[in-house]
């Protein structure tokens, strides 16, 4: 692990030291046809971008240096960042997801301007534990030039990650964007001998409801003594996993450690006759309603903690 990191850092260090790579000419000049295609597709109606005196929409800056459909791999110029990507791929960090893109516009561009761009690697950070898997954040900068005049810059950051195995690949949610580095999840339940069976069950993909070993009554949250018959003999039933939203909140403020707002917490009534609290995930916050049918799912929050959560039942 350390050797691997040392190797990656050495490759990256060299690439960072190399500074800006060769200036590459944009395949097309700033032109009206590409602009109007873009404004049409985006639904952009700003009059600045039309007519004989049009300027280019600033957010198009990267479009000008896109290589297009029939790019020729042999003619492609090698960039400093390529060494780093190759080293990461070889180490198994084959997944890729972009996390940040920041443009700075020095001026707007006129029709007919011919651009070049230069790229330099600026940072690599990792390994970080993320929702997608362990990975490295790689950051580079691109500067666009008209002649020798810098006209725009871009900072771009992406995560190269080692994909997790399929069992935990259902990580798509929990309002967790790709870039959220997964430290140990901070909101941990206290567990004791009266409640451990529930959390053990969740780890095994079972929603366990305490059941009295004598009178058979189901109870959640669980406790050491049956309030109905005083028995301390405890067993559990495994719930079917279906439920109905009994009430819910959409939490916005203040921020909660480990979670992104807004998120939904619901009281869910299950057909076994008890209620449980959990998050509603994979559902727009405004689509949740009292009475909504849901089913349980399990979300691994970190190496140790799994939480039961609820997703809408497909209509």
């Amino acid at each position: 692990m350390t050797d691997e990191r040392d190797h990656l850092m050495a490759v990256a260090g060299k690439a960072i030291a190399a500074g800006e790579g060769p200036r590459i000419a944009a395949p097309l000049p700033v032109n009206a046809a590409t602009i109007s295609h873009w404004t049409e597709a985006m639904g952009e109606r700003n009059p600045l971008y039309a007519g004989p005196d049009a300027v280019a929409p600033p957010a198009m800056i990267q479009v000008w240096s896109m290589e297009g459909l029939n790019r020729d791999p042999d003619r492609r110029v090698r960039l400093p960042v390529d060494d780093v990507f190759e080293a990461l791929d070889e180490a198994g960090f084959t997944g890729v997801v972009a996390t940040n893109c920041e443009h700075t516009y020095h001026r707007y561009l006129d029709l007919g301007e011919e651009l070049t761009s230069g790229t330099r690697l600026t940072d690599i950070a990792g390994p970080k534990r993320t929702a997608l898997g362990d990975g490295y954040f790689v950051t580079w900068n691109v500067t666009w030039y008209a002649g020798d005049e810098p006209v725009a810059e871009m900072m771009f950051r992406l995560l190269k990650f080692r994909p997790k195995t399929s069992a935990t690949a259902a990580d798509e949610s929990r309002n967790v964007g790709a870039e959220a580095a997964r430290e140990p999840y901070p909101l941990r339940p206290a567990v004791n001998r009266d409640t451990a069976f529930f959390w053990d069950g969740v780890r095994e993909g079972e929603l366990r409801i305490q059941k009295c070993g004598d009178c058979g009554i189901l109870r959640h949250p669980p406790g050491p003594v049956c309030p109905t018959c005083r028995s301390t003999r405890r067993t559990h039933a495994v719930a079917s996993g279906s439920g109905t939203v009994y009430s819910y909140v959409v939490h916005h403020n203040p921020p909660v450690p480990g979670l992104r707002t807004p998120f939904v917490v619901a009281v869910v009534e299950v057909p076994e006759g008890v209620r449980l609290v959990g998050n509603i995930v994979r559902c727009a916050t405004e689509d949740v309603y009292v009475g909504m049918p849901v089913r349980v799912t399990y979300q691994q929050m970190d190496d140790e903690l799994t939480l039961p959560m609820w997703i809408p039942v497909e209509a």
Binding site: A41, M42, E44, P58, E102, H103, Y105, G177, R260
Partner: peptide
């Protein structure tokens, strides 16, 4: 990036000029 620009530009109108656009990507 383009849609964020368009959303802001719809509101700000043709007299405003963008100096920068910072985007953090989620789901």
């Amino acid at each position: 990036m383009g849609l964020v620009e368009r959303y802001v530009s719809d509101w700000a109108g043709p007299s405003a000029r963008f100096r920068g656009l910072k985007v953090k990507l989620g789901v």
